[in-house]
Design a protein around this nucleic acid. Structure first.
Lengths: 191, 191
DNA sequence: CAGGTCATGTAAAGCGTTACATGATTTT
DNA sequence: AAAATCATGTAACGCTTTACATGACCTG
């Protein structure tokens, strides 16, 4: 019954800690900036909210991985963070570690498809068409940032390409399968 | 700053509640059975742990969506659940609702690729190869249950097919991209 | 000067995993 | 007789979202 080991060991980085250290290494120095870039770029495979980012920045500071100093711009409070030596080495240590990477998916569309046998078969096709519509919206969002990402470094651009490719593949599957199911239903009605 | 609406409204089903009601409709009547089937079939896109399942079963009972009665088999305690009318209609209501479906992904491999620009370019290829290896293991797990799922109802089998298709697509992308990057690196070394 | 964005944060609640505990039954 | 599996559950902890709150600055 034992499930795989803990997600975070005390000496290591929490999930949000990982994206924060990386974003600081990428030159994003405030919680606000980090959140902006997360939303624009990693959101589709790694989200983070303010409620996590600000407390986590302080925990990282307590652990000596980042250093923050107050740098108000005008009368507006602002805390600017940078990596310490320890922070850089924690980041590199994480990037180079080859532990089983965390992978978690929660896809409500698939869950509805899974349970589609408790309703009539027509609902199954509807379920798949709803999944396709959702993925189509997601694809449009990813496409909207493609041109912008092309100008940046290769890492972020590659993850965007992968996200687009997977979404297209998902859409193709939905189309093919919906068509096939509809054809099968038509044939069985004829007989 | 406002983020998208709440994941669960009071009158609706919690994430784990959804999979539980569905599994009971599928004929799984104990917490243990539900967990077994979740691990065998929905785990790759919708997980659930005992620590969630047992308390949630009781909450569902309090809300009148399921009815449990003690049915010891031998001297071994056992609680058998079934859907109430309200539970059936909650399940159908959820299956037929067309709210934006929950979709959450956390992919550490992609996050490492995203940040691969903070290290040397060779690490990027290694990162992608690690992703491929991980997906290869996942694909083997899915393939292992394929024959078993083929005999069951179409819903579960379709989700498995989709999972396999997406994983294959992921692996293809990794292979193609790793090859391309390696070739580019070779060419730039020559010049 | 109103509305939007910049910027920071907290509190409460919900969600979820992990680790632990217990004891019966079945298999080897 | 030991080991694995069946079956149930709890407690502690960690993670995350949501909602709220504050106030400065900028644009039209």
């Amino acid at each position: 019954m034992a499930q795989p080991g803990p997600k975070t060991r005390p000496s290591e980085l929490s999930p949000t800690g990982r994206v924060i250290l990386g974003m600081i290494a990428f030159g994003k120095s405030t919680g606000y900036d980090i959140k902006q870039l997360v939303d624009k770029s990693t959101r589709h495979f790694w989200a983070a909210s303010y409620g996590q980012i600000y407390p986590e920045l302080r925990r990282l500071e307590e652990r000596g991985l980042v250093r923050g100093r107050s740098e108000p711009s005008g009368g507006r409070a602002r805390t600017v963070y940078e990596l310490t030596e320890a922070g850089e080495s924690a980041l590199h240590g994480w990037l180079e570690s080859d532990e089983e990477p965390l992978y978690e998916l929660r896809d409500e569309g698939m869950l509805k498809l899974f349970f589609s046998d408790v309703a009539e078969p027509e609902r199954r096709v509807e379920s798949i068409l709803a999944m396709r519509a959702h993925k189509e919206r997601k694809l449009a969002q990813l496409r909207a940032i493609e041109a912008y990402a092309k100008q940046g470094p290769p890492g972020p651009y590659l993850t965007l390409q992968l996200g687009i490719g997977l979404t297209e593949c998902y859409i193709d599957w939905c189309e093919t399968t919906a068509r096939r199911l509809a054809a099968e239903a038509g044939r069985s009605r004829q007989c």
